[in-house]
Amino acid sequence: MKTIAIISSVGGAGRTTLTAALAGLLGARKHAVLALECDPRNVLALYGGLREPAGAGLASYLLNPGSAPAEAALQSDDGTLWLPWGGARPQGGLSAAEQAMIAATLHRQPGWLRDLLAQVDLPGNGIALVDTATWPSVHAEQAIAAADLVVVVVPPTPLACATLLRLRAELAGRGKQSLYVANGISPAMALHTDIIALLRQLLGAELSTYRIHADSGVPEALARNQNFSLAAPHSQAAHDMQGLATWLSSWVKQASRRAAPAAGGAP
């Protein structure tokens, strides 16, 4: 099983959207997929078809280490497993004290998520996709520590470019393989074209050739409670996501093949 963290250095980059879309597309490529949310916003499960914020999830497990996290996992009808952050209660969210406690735990144990994922046993070329809060944060740190591959979502904004170098240095320092994906690109915008040129210059081969184009159908699909790639299969954005999913799928297969001999031929 390989873990892919989906992070970004600015808010609203489209991490959760991309995580949910990739979960479905990788599932369609015969991978067992677990989409996991390490983000206190607790919205991932909404993409999976849940009508209201999830109550059980990682947060409840953190608060009550005795419970089994698997109990909080949900399964959508395409077979994808969803593990939301959780913590939603009828009268509101987590209290400030609980949030502080969770943050403290995560801060104290940087490898907490990695250890948790090590207990998960997905069959074959299984993939765990980890959606996180905006980097830098304890949540993003957890996801990066757990990840085999870090997918950095870059929206075409000046701020994203400004914070990118620091993030890149951080990832390089930790020896993480990373892939940068530009998201929400419109060729009609001169700024977007320029930023893409800048990113290509800056990142070279680390910038994915698959850039996700801006498409108003993406938020619309969420509002209609639809899977975007299935609802608008001919849209360019869906094509781009398909391309990215295929790339990730083959990366996972290659990485597993490389790891297999190293692990002494273990199945």
Binding site: S186, H213, A232, H234, S235, A238
Partner: peptide, 13 residues
């Protein structure tokens, strides 16, 4: 090629 429709949707063609 990619079409960008007036409502902001895209179309791969």
């Amino acid at each position: 090629a990619m079409l960008i429709l007036p409502d902001g949707k895209t179309l791969a063609c």
